[in-house]
């Protein structure tokens, strides 16, 4: 029915991160995760590490591993080659350093910051784990890794 005029409706399955309330939703999810982990009775260091690593694994799969639209909206305009790009590559139509992208990047760094602060320096293994998780989350979010495939095509 859309004929020519006006802006193209964006794929809400991809673009929901830019919508109102989604950042607070994201932060709330992490806090809930942190509270659940502390209910298990873990030390703060182990709890923050677990949250950091869990966040790393989940975001790596959803943002950087699965391709196509996370919540397909077949009734709307679908960009070309959508199925060959990950969710992160489709966000904000591929623009880099948009507010929602910067939010995600800073969130990764802040999580790492908490994990570093909570972990005693003597626990080297935990620091190493945290650092790896931090790198794995941060690297694919950088503009230089846009549309670069390392592990598979």
């Amino acid at each position: 029915m859309q004929a020519g005029h006006g802006s193209v409706t964006s794929d809400v399955g991809v673009e929901w991160l830019g919508k109102k309330g989604s950042w607070s939703f994201y932060v709330a999810l992490l806090l809930i995760g942190r509270v659940l982990v502390s209910i298990l009775g873990l030390e703060p260091s182990a709890a923050w590490t677990l949250v950091n690593i869990g966040h790393c694994v989940v975001t790596f799969i959803t943002f950087h591993w699965c391709k196509g639209s996370p919540f397909p909206t077949y009734w709307l305009y679908v960009p070309e080659n959508e199925d060959t790009y990950t969710w992160w590559e489709q966000i904000d139509r591929g623009w880099q350093f948009t507010p929602s992208r910067k939010f995600c990047i800073v969130l990764v760094i802040v999580l790492y910051l908490f994990a570093v602060g909570a972990t005693p320096w003597s626990n080297v293994w935990m620091h190493m784990l945290n650092f790896v998780a931090f790198l794995v989350s941060l690297t694919p979010k950088l503009p230089c890794m846009d549309k670069v495939r390392i592990f598979r095509d």
């Binding site: 904000d92 139509r93 591929g94 623009w95 880099q96 350093f97 948009t98 507010p99 910067k102 990047i105 800073v106 760094i109 802040v110 790492y112 910051l113 570093v116 602060g117 320096w121 503009p143 846009d146």
Partner: peptide, 23 residues
Amino acid sequence: QHLLELMCVLLSIYFWLQRAYKP
């Protein structure tokens, strides 16, 4: 540890100040 924290803060500030662009 302080050094790592400082790095985190500086990185955050650096990324937050970037301007959006279309690659």
